[in-house]
């Protein structure tokens, strides 16, 4: 669970950076530095998401990892059940 949580934490950090940047870009659409930051974080996010999903299964139905049998989406723990260290 430790490795899974470390990877999940990394995804949460990258996605938080993106959420904060998109709100900033909504009101500063011409800000080139913020646009560059957003592009950089998004690229990094795609790599980490792929790594996580290959091991622990899809985080959304748009996951790009191979489909496995049985339907992996149902595997727990669900987000509200995870015990963070």
């Amino acid at each position: 669970m430790d490795e899974r949580l470390t990877l999940l934490r990394e995804i949460q950090e990258l996605e938080f950076a993106m959420v904060d940047l998109i709100l900033f870009l909504d009101t500063h659409p011409q800000d080139r530095a913020a646009l560059r930051d957003y592009a950089a974080v998004r690229d990094k996010h795609m790599v980490v998401i792929k790594r996580y999903e290959e091991i622990y299964g899809p985080l959304s139905f748009c996951s790009t990892t191979p489909v496995k049998c049985p339907w992996q989406w149902l595997e727990g723990p669900w987000p509200w059940e995870i015990e963070y260290a």
Partner: peptide, 8 residues
Amino acid sequence: EKKLQYPV
């Protein structure tokens, strides 16, 4: 997305 935005 099957995760929380921030850990609880």
